[in-house]
Amino acid sequence: MIKNWYCFGVAIVLWLICMWLTMPFPDALNIERGVSVLNVLIKTKDGYQIEGLLTILLLSICLYFLIYGVKKHQIFWSLALIVSFVFVPSLIVNAYQNTLATGINAVSYDIDKSDCRFKLEDDYTLKGTCRLPLQNLSTEEVTLNLEFYETYWYEDDVRSVSLMNAGLPYEVKLKGKQKKWVRVETLIDVSQLENHIEKGTVSGVHIIINGGGKIRRF
C-alpha cells in the first residue's frame, strides 16, 4: 500500500498540524463572519487570514505528499484525508469534553439552535429575550457567567445581540450532565443609541462564557 514511506510520513505530520490549527477548542470554530474553505476561515472584514491561508496551503502540500506516498487508490485516500480533516477535530474535542474536561471546558453550546428576539416596548425601551442551549458534559456542577457579542461584515450592520449586555451579569449553573435551555431577558435603554435593531429575531447567537479564570468564545 505504501510506495514511499518518507512522503507518507510527511503527509501524516502535515495532516496532524492542519488538524491542530483547526481544533475548535477552547473557542468555537469560525467565530467571525467571513469566507471559509473546509471549515477554515480565510477571509473576514479585516482581510485575508494568514493562519487560515497557511492551513489550506499545508493541507494542499499534505495531499501532494500523500498521493506520491501510496501505491494506488490515491483518490480514495485523498478524500479520506479531507473528510477526516473536517470531522475528526470535532470528534476529538467531544471525546475530551466527555471524559477529562472540567469547569467551563466541559460546556458545549449549540449555536445553531440559539436565538434572540427583540421588540420595542416604547420609543426608548427595547426588550430582548434570548434562548441559549447549553450542556454540561462533565459529572460535576459548573457555574459560569455569560455575555454576548456579535461580528460585523459591513460597517452599517445594526447592533442586536450585543445590546443584551445591558443586563449583565448573567450567571448560569449547570448540574452534572445537564442539558439546559438558558433563557435571558432584559430591558434595554436605546434612547442614546443609533443604528440598533427595533424588532425581529436573530439566530446563531455568539456568546462568551467565563468561569474558574477561563474564557471561551462561541
Rank of each mutant, 00 (worst) to 15 (best):
G176E: 08
T129L: 07
V88K: 01
Y64T: 13
N39T: 13
V184H: 05
I92F: 13
W181S: 12
L144T: 06
V161H: 00
T44W: 07
D46I: 14
D123G: 04
F218I: 13
E155K: 13
L16N: 08
T129I: 12
H196V: 13
L58F: 15
L59N: 09
I2Y: 04
F65P: 04
W20I: 07
L29A: 10
P89G: 05
L58D: 07
Q74N: 07
D156I: 08
E141Y: 11
I42E: 02
Q178F: 01
L54F: 13
I61D: 00
N94Q: 11
V161W: 01
E171D: 09
K43Y: 15
S191E: 12
F85W: 07
E121V: 15
W181H: 11
K45Y: 11
S203P: 02
V35Q: 03
K199Q: 13
K180Y: 02
D123A: 14
L174F: 07
T102E: 09
L193N: 01
Q97D: 00
G167L: 04
K179Y: 09
R131F: 08
G103M: 07
K173D: 07
T99Q: 13
L41F: 08
V172T: 01
S162T: 10
E141S: 15
T151L: 04
Q135G: 11
T102V: 08
K214M: 12
E51H: 06
I104R: 04
T99P: 13
G128S: 00
P24R: 10
L193T: 01
S138V: 10
